[in-house]
Amino acid sequence: MSEAGVIHDIGYQRYRGPRLGRLALQQALYVQGLRAAFGLGRSAKAKIFPWLVAGIMLLVAVILAAIRSQTGQVIFTYMQFADQMSLLIIFFVAIVAPQLVSRDLRSNTLPLYFSRPLRAADYVLAKYAAMTTSMWLLLGVPQFIMFLGAAFTTKDGFRGVWNELGDLVPGLGYSLLWALMFAGIGLLVASFTGKQAFAAGGIVAVFMMTTPIFGVFMSLPSTTANSLAGLTSPMFLIAGVGQWLGGGADAEWDLGRFGPIYGIEAFCLIVSCVLLLLARYRKVASL
């Protein structure tokens, strides 16, 4: 194909290597999304906010671990840590979710993805997995630091470490619940606009606006209304599920016998967010 007379140019080389399947594409997109969540492989500017949030949370965890190891005092349990960090988590979602999905909408990159073997569902699932993982890491790593602080200074030997681990694992599970729900809602909101600032504002609004509703329900005289108040806000919904599963040891408000409802709503909310995302992208994918 290349002419013999041309010697300064080695010409076009055909590719004869392997071509990977859709699972590999999904993985590659997942890894890229996870890296992008923390600004890795991106400009320095993109690293500021994710690492600011992560830094604060790590710092809090280190302080908590230090207090725990010096005085043996437990300020936050693992689950309380996630609840206390809720504002930072919202902040993180508002930064990362637009980064993951609004950017591709804004720059119109999606036709380039969907003219390749990748499908809309692959794209959505990879992004959702990346977002969830990044949030789980955001919460889980500080929790693990707290665990290390406690485990290395325990006075009960191996049994103490084992007990601490028994506290950590539900804590990590609770963080995963946070991650699954906030990733779903965050990505869904962000997938409706290409403007990252709008998306971030929308996400903060969705999470913040629901908090006053919780307050209104709590102020009602009915105990049933009080018990169901947490259903109105994602943050309190998760806290409610935590209380229900954790036995309601540190109840902020009384769930009554409505614990399972919290569980069902959380599950339905996560599933419907993912389904709506899939539906949204099936429409986008047809260009």
Binding site: G17, L20, A28, L29, G41, L112
Partner: peptide
């Protein structure tokens, strides 16, 4: 595609590499 479809904040090398991976390389 006909329209503009490139993000502004990555290098061409990185972007084309990423899309190469999306094609299964």
């Amino acid at each position: 595609p006909e329209n503009d479809c490139l993000p502004g904040d990555v290098s061409a090398s990185e972007f084309v590499t990423h899309l190469g991976r999306m094609s299964g390389l």
